[in-house]
Design a protein around this nucleic acid. Structure first.
Lengths: 339, 339
DNA sequence: GCCACGATTGGAACCGCTTCCACGAGGAGG
DNA sequence: CCTCCTCGTGGAAGCGGTTCCAATCGTGGC
């Protein structure tokens, strides 16, 4: 079965192809009578315009590519959800590009200069190099970054340093003195920097309160629940275990909770745990965390990219953080009387 | 900056456009010398072929649309991950279409007949009507279903009835007699039927063992953790609470765990809980569950759809289920000794 | 030395739509 | 009654590739 084309519709309606195209695109300069005839022809032929042909002709694909590393991470999924809603409302397609290896990252930013696959790019936690950014700009492909600051590109971020401070202040207020930080490996192929920034804020706040974050209290591991669990096992099994642990993401914090449970330690009585992100799982494991508006970040990023496609300028945005207490932290027994 | 076209490359290399195209597509009938000149021209011009132009010309977009309802559900995300891997390996794009409202579902299957947006369709838990299926077939758009059986279309499923039985047998073996089923509302706009099938298998196995699943032990609610938690609160707070609960998905089972915790009930000592799916969260909340291979289902679905695109015929597949015991179920106190 | 044939190559036609330009028909103004 | 607009409209020219057909150039066989 051949698909019907605009020419077939034109023939059926007894008009020219230009007129059919005008009807399709809602041009006002078509008489009411003609419009009706064309619409009838479209209905009888069950005609559907070809998206590719239109894209080739107009230079717009109506697709936005979302580039995310390990998109199955709960935090990324939350962001995706915000994007998906916003994009589908404006009738744009969402092309999902998962990045798990460095060379995939490079391919994306390179072939993104293929105008024609998508009109714009939305990245999560990933940033192009200067060269890549220039090429994208030259190719007219707008780009908005989420969870990654950039000197020239519009970005949606949170203040990770401040977030680290929030965690520190929360624990300090509860009387904790000996705290540990569990974060991502400093070197990573994608240049993720939130973990390092959170650590920086955390350490700075502790130092200001007169409680250095000692080097042996900083544990950096590959991102993820499993590695965090293993690291926490060592940390908590040792003779001198800290009274509180700040993990740089909720999934890592959940790894810590698992380790505590395996060791028969109670949370928060024996050890306090605070995470970062506020993914859904944090609610049902009752994890106290530094919450960031994940879904909003996605929705906002999508809106920004659409505005850039409409030719508007957009400004970077910094979203707010706040500690959500769900009971996985408590006053330190040694210093403050507690329940 | 104008993007360079194939004509520019041809001019630069001093050859015809046909030759450039042949080089691009690895045709053997180009002399080594010419090929080199063309490749040099491509490099100097930083040429990237246009994906849309190619798609219009060949009729292949190299994109597969994945249609999923509420794709942020953990089980769906796991499947997506399998698809993403497989599709990206074969250099296909993944277009993600979230379906949250019935009219979105309809739009997808209708406009899917727009050849030109994607070459094939992969659905999760969703099926087209007969009419829609015919139109898709007529338009030459292959379709593979995941988590939904269909009389004529290739599908990847599990035997939900058998899964319900597995849950029942597991609980019966532990000595439970008074069990409850927590599932999805029977009427839903998308025609999801797994919950009903799991209920059927569960009830049948109980009946065969001589322990009817009484109507008041069947609780059907909107899918999701929150509704399940609320329902479980009622069920567990009542005077006659069941000794075990089978929830039709892990997220619902987690809702049950939350309710139990809020009520101060211990799992599994006071109540056993078993879920279905085996999402990642099941591991860290230590939920016993009927496990299905989620990621494999996605990977396999993607492979099948690619084979259909290559013109091969494919057969429906039924994947295996098995109970994974993580300790949220235990022997019933009233009848069997033991913790 | 001539012809047939295979290896390369150039380029027109085509994929299906948008858009711009030209043109005819009325209607208003003089 | 004749211009001059405006309004609708038809259709050719792109958009940037692929592909098929015809043409050219050697080369081997006779």
């Amino acid at each position: 079965m051949r698909r019907s084309t605009i020419a077939a519709v034109a023939a059926e309606a007894g008009v020219g192809v230009g007129t059919v195209s005008r009807v399709l695109n809602g041009s006002p300069s078509v008489s009411e009578d003609t419009r009706r005839r064309v619409l009838e022809a479209i209905a009888t032929l069950d005609y559907q315009p070809s998206a590719v042909a239109r894209a080739l002709s107009t230079g717009r694909t109506h697709a936005v590519a979302v580039v995310a590393p390990f998109f199955t991470q709960p935090s990324v999924v939350e962001r995706l959800r915000g994007m998906s809603r916003t994009l589908s409302e404006s009738r744009h397609q969402l092309i999902l590009i998962d990045v798990e290896r460095p060379e995939q990252r490079r391919d994306v930013f390179r072939s993104a200069s293929v105008r024609g696959r998508y009109d714009a790019l939305l990245t999560v936690s990933l940033a192009p190099t200067e060269t890549e950014a220039r090429r994208l700009a030259a190719a007219g492909v707008p780009l908005v970054l989420i969870d990654r600051a950039h000197p020239t590109l519009p970005a949606i971020t949170v203040d990770d340093v401040a977030g680290g401070r929030l965690a520190a202040e929360h624990l300090l207020a509860l009387g904790h003195r000996d705290m540990a930080f569990l974060g991502d490996e400093a070197q990573n192929a994608f240049g993720f920097d939130s973990s390092a920034n959170r650590q920086e804020g955390f350490a700075a706040a502790l130092a200001e309160a007169g409680h250095e974050l000692r080097p042996e209290r900083v544990i950096l591991r590959r991102h993820g629940r499993e590695a965090a669990r293993a690291a926490a096992m060592e940390l908590l099994a040792s003779g001198e275990r800290p009274s509180a642990i700040f993990a740089t993401s909720d999934m890592q914090a959940i790894g810590v909770l698992e380790a505590a449970q395996e060791l028969g330690l109670r949370v928060p009585e024996d050890v306090s745990v605070i995470g970062f992100d506020d993914v859904e799982a944090a609610t049902y494991v009752r994890l106290t965390t530094v919450a960031q508006p994940l879904r909003e970040s996605g929705a906002l990023g999508a809106r920004m990219v659409l505005r850039r496609l409409a030719g508007e300028e957009v400004e970077s945005v910094q979203l707010d953080l706040q500690v959500v207490d769900r009971g996985s932290t408590a006053a330190h027994m040694g210093l403050v009387s507690g329940k």
